[in-house]
């Protein structure tokens, strides 16, 4: 089980959190201007790296806030958590 640090509540067990997938995927400002392939890329394609991964977690059974985590997908080691600015996919501050 992962020990995840919520930027507001501190370190808690993984069972308190729910996973939100890859971070940093901004919703296109004007979806109508995109081709089907560009829209599909936003909607479905993921980088799914083997190694460092920036991802979203929600402290579902705590403060209920979204935040970002950088975690290695092979060792599962978490190198840090960060608060989000500019929405859930807005990157770190």
């Amino acid at each position: 089980m992962l020990l995840i640090e919520c930027p507001w509540c501190g370190e808690r067990a993984e069972t308190e959190f729910s996973y939100g997938g890859e971070a940093g995927i901004a919703r296109p400002a004007d979806p109508d201007a995109l081709t089907d392939a560009e829209w599909a890329d936003y909607l479905f394609n993921r980088s799914n790296p083997r190694g460092a991964h920036r991802e979203l977690w929600n402290h579902a059974q705590g403060c209920r806030r979204w935040f970002g985590v950088e975690r290695d997908t092979v060792t599962y080691r978490i190198s840090g958590s960060y608060r989000l600015s500019g929405g859930a996919h807005g990157g770190g501050d």
Partner: peptide
């Protein structure tokens, strides 16, 4: 739930 390549789970 999380993305993972480590061949184990929680």
């Amino acid at each position: 739930a999380y993305n993972g390549y480590g061949q184990r789970g929680s």
